[in-house]
Nucleic acid binder design. Structure first.
Lengths: 194, 194
DNA sequence: GTCTATATTATGATAGAC
DNA sequence: GTCTATCATAATATAGAC
């Protein structure tokens, strides 16, 4: 690692984010040192501070940009609540398989944020969860779903779906389409839509 | 904090475990210092080493004893697979509400274990998960459940149920019985038993 | 069993040269 | 933009007194 001079600004910034995301996801924010990130990128530790004011800002940036992308990529559509739920489930699974580290981080490292930063991410997360809750509410109203408690069902579904990041490994037993099918089956049943 | 002399061996040991569990669950293993644990207990940092050889052993002890208690407390019974699943769901929820920090830790801090220690806990966890998987298998064989993939359904259910530790707060909107009812409804539906 | 004191190592972050 | 060098602080763990 660690070249000896030379500027590569265009690629170093993204690389820092990539390696930090990967390391934070594997070892946890607190267990990863700035030197470790720098080494993975191939620069010295001091160089990181040209891109981030401090370690906490780096974590916030990773979580916030992920949540923003998530919210930008997701758009509900009018129509059958069951079709909307299926779209949500497949979207969430696809996102989790495309960006496992980012999803895992956003789920696990909220506690490593300062209170102010936590509040920002929690707001974005609530907005995302509200999207699912709206679908469930409409499903119940239309008589297509049976749900005892909207809030709890929302969190249970999110936890179930996000759990895919705990075991999924590239090139495993199941392909992406199949995983989406299976989770859709579980989710559909959970909301009483069978 | 921090008395100045005096032996209280009978209570210090359990206190260390209690405070370590609480702090590890809130902040994460790597983010908690031995000094912080000592301060919460009311002793100096050096005193901790009369009870644990090092920090890693303290984490291992917490996770291993929790998993052992979990396995000791759970016992499947012969009979209707649906009734067995309901017992499992309520057992898991009750345990998660009784020992939220221990359950949370066992779910989140596996990555903070050394490889050898990780293997020990993973073995215990697999045994617990196998208990659920057996119920699902019998349910499918009896034609009482519809499940696409046994392994995946097992992990999805565990993730969903364990998620209760993410939001549950003592004295909240829902009482324990009600939470168990709601999760049982979700689980029953997820396995196609409606 | 607990304290005080300390050895050793690692950390986040900054300063100044190139 | 990156490096080297370093400051200041905090970490785990140990030694020896009581």
């Amino acid at each position: 690692m660690a070249r000896t001079q030379g500027s590569r600004a265009e690629i170093t910034g993204p690389l820092i984010r990539d390696e930090a995301r990967r390391l934070f996801a594997r070892q946890g924010y607190a267990a990863v040192s700035m030197r470790q990130i720098a080494s993975a990128v191939g620069v010295q530790a001091g160089a990181l501070y040209a891109y981030t004011p401090d370690k906490q800002a780096l974590l916030l940036d990773l979580l916030e940009s992920h949540m923003q992308e998530l919210l930008a990529a997701w758009s509900d559509v009018p129509g059958d609540p069951l079709a909307r739920l299926e779209r949500f489930v497949r979207f969430h699974i696809d996102t989790s398989l495309d960006h496992p580290d980012a999803v895992f981080l956003s789920y696990m490292e909220l506690r490593s944020l300062t209170p102010a930063n936590f509040a920002r991410i929690a707001t974005l997360r609530s907005r995302y969860e509200a999207g699912l809750e709206a679908i469930l509410r409409d499903g119940v109203a239309a008589g297509l779903m049976r749900i005892d408690d909207l809030k709890l069902a929302t969190m249970a579904l999110i936890a179930m779906l996000t759990g895919v990041t705990n075991w999924y490994r590239e090139g495993g037993r199941l392909d992406r389409k199949r995983i989406g099918d299976i989770y859709w089956g579980l989710a559909r049943g959970a909301v009483g839509a069978d």
